[in-house]
Design a protein around this nucleic acid. Sequence first.
DNA 1: CATAGGAGTGAGTAATCACTCATATTATTT
DNA 2: AAATAATATGAGTGATTACTCACTCCTATG
Lengths: 207, 207
Amino acid sequence: MKSISETEQLEKSKKKTTEERRQDILEAALNIFTEKGYNGSTTAEIAKAAGVAEGTIFRHFATKKELLIAVLKPKILTGIISLDKEQEDPVEFFRCFLKNRLELIKENDGLVRFMFAEAQYHDEVREALSNGILGDGINIVKPWFNKGVEEGVFKPIPFPAMMRSFMGMVLFYGIFNHVFPGFSPEKTIDEAADQILELFLNGLLIK
Amino acid sequence: MKSISETEQLEKSKKKTTEERRQDILEAALNIFTEKGYNGSTTAEIAKAAGVAEGTIFRHFATKKELLIAVLKPKILTGIISLDKEQEDPVEFFRCFLKNRLELIKENDGLVRFMFAEAQYHDEVREALSNGILGDGINIVKPWFNKGVEEGVFKPIPFPAMMRSFMGMVLFYGIFNHVFPGFSPEKTIDEAADQILELFLNGLLIK
DNA sequence: CATAGGAGTGAGTAATCACTCATATTATTT
DNA sequence: AAATAATATGAGTGATTACTCACTCCTATG
C-alpha cells in the first residue's frame, strides 16, 4: 500500500523525496556560492555539502549556471515589505521600509553581497537583481515618495537621485560591516535604522 | 657602445624594457580581471592581451594571485584628495571630497566594482581595501567631521554611522548605474555630487 | 669575436573542472 | 514476487587550468 511506505519514510526520516533532495542541493549551493563565489565553487564540493553524488546535481539542474539561477530566483523576490498598520504617513513608510530592508540584509548578509558581486560578471544575475529586489524596491518606494512630495513633506528632488542614495545607505550597511568588521558599534538593527533614517530625513547640518 | 644601442631602442621603439613589459602585463590583467573577475580570467588570455608569452607572466609574478595583488596595490592608494585652496570650512571640505571621490569612481568604474566584488572572497583584497581607499577615506574625513561638530555646524551623530552612510551614497553611485543602466538621468558628475550633497547635508524633509 | 647571463618563449604537465553514462538502488505497479 | 519505472551513483572523459622548464634570442662585456 502506498500510505504505508510513505508513512515509513516520514517516520524513519531516512529516505528523501526528489523535492527534498533538490532543496538540499539548493541550500548547499547557496552556502558554497556565497562563501567562494560562483567561479570559485565546484560542483563536487556542492554535492559533498548536500550529501549527494555529483551526478545527482545534474539530474536536477542541467548546468552549473542553471543551478546558480535556481538558487537566486526564489531569494531575489522574497521579503516584500508588509506595512502592518494601515499606513498613511510617508515618513512612517520610510521607517518601516528601512527596518524591513535592514533585517532582510542582516538575515541574508552573504547572499546580498554575493548577488552584488556576481552582478558584476553575469548578465543573468544583473537582470535578476533589477527585476527582483532592486526593481521591487523602486516600485514600492516611488508612490510613497510622490505622496510625500505632494503633501509638501518631502523636497521635490529627482526620484532617481533620492533612490540611489537611499539604497546606497541601506545596502552598504552589510558590505561595509563585512570589509570593516567591528567598525560600526551599533548592537541592534533598530539603532542602525534610526541613525540612517535621521541622516536621510534631516541631514547632517544643524539648521 | 652603450649609448648607441640605447638610442636605437628608443628610436625604433621595438624592444621594451623589463619594467615596460611588467606594466603591459599589469594593464592587461586589470582589464581582463575587471571584465571577467579573478576566477573567470585565465593567465593565457591575460598573456595574449599583454602581447607576451604565458611563461613571461610567471617570470614577473610568481602566482596568479600575486598578479592580482600587484594589480590592486597601486590603484588602491591613489586618488588622495587635494584641497586646492586652504580650506577651513567643513562643509566645503565635504563638497570637495565628494566630487573628488565621484570623479575617481567614474574614472575607475570597473576597478571599483571589481574590488568590492572580489573583497567578498579574498582576504587580501579586503585588507587592501580597508588599508587603502576606504581606510584613507575614514582618516581624511574624521578630523573634518569632528571640526564641524565642534563648531556647532554638524550634528554630533556617531562617526561610524555617518561615514557608512556617506560612503554608501557615494560608492553605490557607480554600482547602481551599472545594474540599472539609464536609471539615473544626471549628465554630469557635478550634478550628481550636488544632489548627493544636498541630501546628505539637509535631508529629505522640508523643515 | 667569443662567451656569459638575463629575459622571453611556448610546448608540456599534473591537477582540476563541468558534465556523462552504464550500472546499482529503490519505489511502484501488476 | 516479479516486472517496471524512477532516481541515485561515482568512475570516467575531454577540456581547461595554473604553472614549469628546456630552449632560444638578445645584449653587454673581456
